[in-house]
């Protein structure tokens, strides 16, 4: 069963020559660099430059204006609180979705992504339907800080759940069973065995949720009523400044907001790098 080796498809003669290869790599890198510069970098630089229109003093004045401070404070505090709640409940939901069994679980699991897929303005409107002035439950949180918290809870729900779920699925149930067998109670097992394994995922999900919450606009704008000093969040404050044709002040507050979100995203990146290094050592 021999194969006639010589009677083969020869390499086309042109390929054999010492023709220089056209290397597409620099071209691709150039295209990617140009794209990201135009779409992401240039706009953000514009904001940073514009925030200094009236010098550092102008920047400082804009971000320390009482209304701006109140708005930034509200966004920061509400975001931290909301992220804390969703870190706990998100982990709990992830646990239920991975380790528990009940009919309709697949639907519940799909429901988690709804806040991500639903446009923010629609999210705000749905919350008003149940918790607004015409609430059939008789609870109205419209035009209150509670309304803001509710909207932020809604839009940040998927982050921790989706970060924790795959890690929990990978985590061997046998490890938990071993801990049980050694006499640890459910709570002790969770605290000493499960939680440390989940912590990087929880923090990573919480970080993304925070970055989202602190700049949230669409879901909040209808339910909060945007009352200065009471229910005006940072993003709404920026929007108002733009509408009032005060882009320098808007840019200054934007820089503060960006810095907050960037710091958190950078912290996550660092955390992820550290945890992958751990894995490699294993």
């Amino acid at each position: 069963m021999s194969v006639a080796v010589d009677r083969a498809v020869p390499l086309p003669a042109s390929r054999r020559g010492a023709r220089r290869r056209v290397d597409g790599a620099p071209l691709l890198r150039g295209a990617v660099g140009a794209w990201l510069s135009l779409i992401v970098v240039l706009p953000l630089i514009a904001v940073a430059v514009r925030s200094l229109d009236n010098g550092l003093a102008g920047f400082w004045k804009a971000v320390t204006a009482p209304q701006a401070v109140a708005a930034l404070q509200l966004s920061l505090v509400a975001s931290v609180g909301v992220v804390a709640v969703n870190a706990v409940l998100g982990t709990l939901i992830a646990w239920v979705l991975i380790r528990d069994r009940f009919p309709g679980k697949a639907i519940v699991d799909a429901l988690i992504d709804l806040p991500f897929a639903l446009p923010t303005i629609v999210a705000g409107l749905t919350l008003i339907a149940l918790y607004g002035p015409k609430s059939p439950l008789g609870v109205s949180v419209a035009y209150t800080r509670a309304g803001i918290v509710l909207a932020l809870l809604f839009v940040t729900l998927p982050f921790v759940v989706r970060a924790v779920q795959p890690v929990l699925a990978e985590l061997d149930a046998e490890v938990e069973e071993a801990a049980h067998a050694l006499g640890a109670s459910g709570w002790t097992t969770f605290r000493l065995v499960i939680l440390p394994a989940l912590l990087p995922a929880i923090l990573s999900g919480a970080g993304l949720a925070f970055a989202r919450a602190v700049g949230e606009f669409g879901s909040v704008v209808l339910i909060s009523g945007n009352i200065p000093f009471r229910t005006e969040v940072a993003a709404v404050n920026i929007f108002t400044q733009v509408e009032n044709n005060n882009p320098a002040a808007a840019a200054a507050i934007s820089v503060v907001l960006l810095a907050l979100a960037m710091a958190v995203l950078a912290a996550i990146a660092l955390l992820e790098r550290r945890s992958t290094r751990h894995e490699r050592v294993d």
């Binding site: 706009p43 953000l44 514009a46 904001v47 970055a211 989202r212 602190v214 700049g215 949230e216 606009f217 669409g218 940072a234 993003a235 709404v236 920026i238 929007f239 733009v242 882009p247 808007a250 840019a251 934007s254 907001l257 960006l258 979100a261 960037m262 958190v264 995203l265």
Partner: peptide, 10 residues
């Protein structure tokens, strides 16, 4: 991590 409002402003 960028608020949509900031994108609009930019």
């Amino acid at each position: 991590g960028v608020s949509p409002v900031v994108v609009g402003l930019a």
